[in-house]
Design a protein around this nucleic acid. Structure first.
Length: 578
RNA sequence: GCCGCCUUAGCUCAGCGGUAGAGCAAUGGUUUCGUAAACCAUCGGUCCGGGGUUCGAAUCCCCGAGGCGGCUCCA
């Protein structure tokens, strides 16, 4: 966002607050900044605000804009500012002065009768505003903490011109059509059933077909890269999570333990403890390292009810997990390999719109476990490997895991929300807590370092992202149905069935649309289901041993010998293993 | 979890105090068709669940569940 637009939006937020105070006297105002997409302002209303009020607020804003009052900057002594906002019955502003204003003076901006504590800048006068729209009402905690009171936030957006505003609103509308929850229903990929439970999505045959391809791809890629796959259960004794530290630092996300035969059992929230115990089964020489143990491991985390969403945020999910146990001198090289693997996976899926985030600890939170000096080593190692990879990244203090720094890959979903798609950590803590060891060339005992890595992250979230990036039109290797046969008349059905079986025997996913419908209707349905290829078969094709191939993308149909097309489809269906 | 909104047939939606409707899908029949929707008929509903107000509730009120947006949290 450029500065002009930010100024414009922030000024529009002021006008909105002015309109709200005019329409609803006695409302307490919070803060009202510009955002990447628009602006918002937080209020404590005396009565609850109904969405029907938004047009009224908009109308009042237009009135104000018409009068074009100037934005007037004012510097007054801090104590006078406190007195002013006390007189105006604006306690949150008084609190803000106490928190934020360290100078002897406080800066105010006045627009007509409205006055706000604000650093600016603003447009010269409200007449310069106009292309705006109020969008939604939401709850938001004061100062972003759930311990504080909840305010009512009004979101809006503003642009320099009506045309830009209109195109933005159109973009929002189009984005909603890409939403994986809508496509998941339209293309029959998954469902969330009330009886099974929220946050516990069920994959349909088509969704499961996509999932199997993802699994096949990543398992084969890992196998080629020197990973060894293990298979471990989804529960464990609670004891192991006391050793790992999860019970202490991660408990609120864990399902409660269940007790059987005087023992407590825990549905696992992470896979690392199981993998650590596989690693610890024998003694290691320095020559044996690194050991890379991988698994598509399902974990269970209790997400608050308001947080679950489609496939992107669920309560049971499968991590494309691996734990690399290596010597300290191997750490950087191993971490660089992880970065290369991530890039390779993203290339294979055709994902381009992402950025790397180095998530570090901060000093304000107390959720971190372990020695700060050890943390420093881990953070330095991650930063160094990232620099060596030459890939740009941003640093995010406070975003680390409780046991170590993370390299996260961040993406945005269809409606613009940012999520972590892949996550990777460097961990000195778990090897310590589990007492892992190896023997050095000097016969001494050393502790290995662990890398937790998951290029795909969660299979569920990744699939959600794939659905949205492809807008449901999966590439051939991932498509749940790769080819739909369309017999023109009933007399072609039997021959087409035999043809389809030949494709199935070559592991191709094909369907025959044998309904008593016209060819046009079958084409339309296959097209809407985003099947990559349609094979129309009538008298002409059966005589010539050909298929009339129509592509999902449109363009001319082509007549191809059926065995030739089978070979071609087989090639296109190959996993993108490079 | 919190704030707000929403929930009517398998799907998309109309009805918003007078006792439930459309299109698509499904089923039966007719049609056997050459590149994005053939025609006719039929079936289909505890109007999310529970309580209340009312002569009468899908419609109004309360409680609960689920969904959506946001906040918090997060793969």
């Amino acid at each position: 966002m450029n500065d002009d637009l930010e100024t414009l939006r922030h000024s529009t937020a002021h006008v909105m607050a002015a309109a709200v105070l005019d329409l609803f006297p006695g409302t307490v105002i919070g803060i009202g900044p510009a955002t990447d997409e628009g602006f918002y302002y937080d209020f404590a209303f005396k009565d609850r605000l109904l969405p029907e009020a938004l047009p009224r607020i908009e109308a009042k804003m237009r009135e104000i804009i018409k009068q074009a009052p100037p934005f007037v900057k004012e510097e007054i002594p801090r104590a006078d500012a406190v007195a002013l906002f006390e007189r105006l019955h604006q306690p949150l502003k008084v609190e803000l002065i106490a928190d934020k204003v360290t100078d002897a003076t406080a800066r105010l901006y006045r627009t007509g009768d409205f006055v706000d504590l604000c650093l600016g800048p603003h447009v010269a006068n409200a007449g310069q505003l106009g292309a705006f729209r109020l969008l939604s009402i939401a709850g938001a905690y004061w100062k972003g903490s759930e311990k504080n009171q909840q305010l009512t936030r009004i979101y809006g957006t503003a642009f320099k011109t009506e045309a830009e505003l209109e195109s933005h609103l159109k973009m929002l509308e189009d984005a909603a059509k890409r939403d994986h929850r809508k496509l998941g229903k339209d293309l029959d990929l998954f469902l969330v059933d009330e009886m099974v439970g929220r946050g516990l999505p069920l994959l349909t045959p088509k969704g499961a077909a996509v999932r199997r391809q993802m699994e096949e791809f990543i398992l084969r890629l890992e196998q080629r890269q020197g990973y060894q796959h293990v298979k471990t259960p989804d529960i464990a004794r609670l004891e192991i999570y006391k050793t790992s530290g999860h019970f202490e630092r991660y408990r609120e996300s864990m399902y409660p333990p269940s007790e059987m035969e005087d023992e407590e059992w825990q549905l696992r929230p992470m896979n690392c403890p199981h993998h650590i115990r596989v690693f610890a089964r024998k003694a290691y020489s320095f020559r044996d390292l690194p050991v890379r143990l991988a698994e598509l491991g399902t974990v269970y985390r209790y997400e608050k009810s308001g947080e679950v969403s489609g496939l992107i945020r669920v309560r049971a999910f499968t991590i494309n997990d691996a734990h690399i146990f290596c010597r300290p001198d191997q750490l950087n090289a191993e971490f660089e390999r992880v970065i290369q693997l991530i890039l390779q996976v993203y290339r294979a899926f055709g994902i381009k719109d992402f950025y790397f985030r180095l998530s570090l600890r901060d000093e304000t939170s107390n959720k971190w476990m372990g020695d700060p000096a050890v943390w420093q080593r881990a953070q330095d190692a991650a930063r160094e490997a990232l620099r060596a990879s030459g890939h740009p990244f941003v640093e995010a203090p406070g975003e680390a895991a409780f046991y170590g720094p993370k390299l996260d890959v961040q993406i945005k979903d269809a409606i613009g929300r940012e999520f972590t798609l892949s996550t990777n950590q460097i961990d000195f803590l778990m090897p310590e807590r589990f007492g892992l060891e190896y023997v050095t060339s000097e016969q001494s005992i050393m502790r290995p370092v662990m890398i937790h890595r998951a290029p795909i992250g969660s299979m569920e979230r990744f699939m959600a992202y794939l659905i949205e990036t492809y807008v449901g039109a999966f590439p051939v290797w991932l498509a749940p149905v790769q080819l739909t046969f369309i017999p023109i008349a009933d007399r072609h059905l039997e021959a087409v069935g035999q043809l389809a079986n030949r494709f199935r025997l070559r592991d191709l996913r094909v369907e025959v649309d044998g309904r008593s419908e016209r060819m046009q209707a079958k084409i339309r349905d296959a097209q809407l289901q985003k099947v990559p290829y349609m094979a129309v078969v009538g008298d002409k094709e059966l005589e010539g041993g050909t298929l009339n191939i129509r592509r999902r993308e449109g363009g001319d149909q082509e007549s191809v010998r059926s065995d030739e097309f089978l070979a071609r489809l087989e090639r296109e269906a190959q996993l993108p293993l490079e």
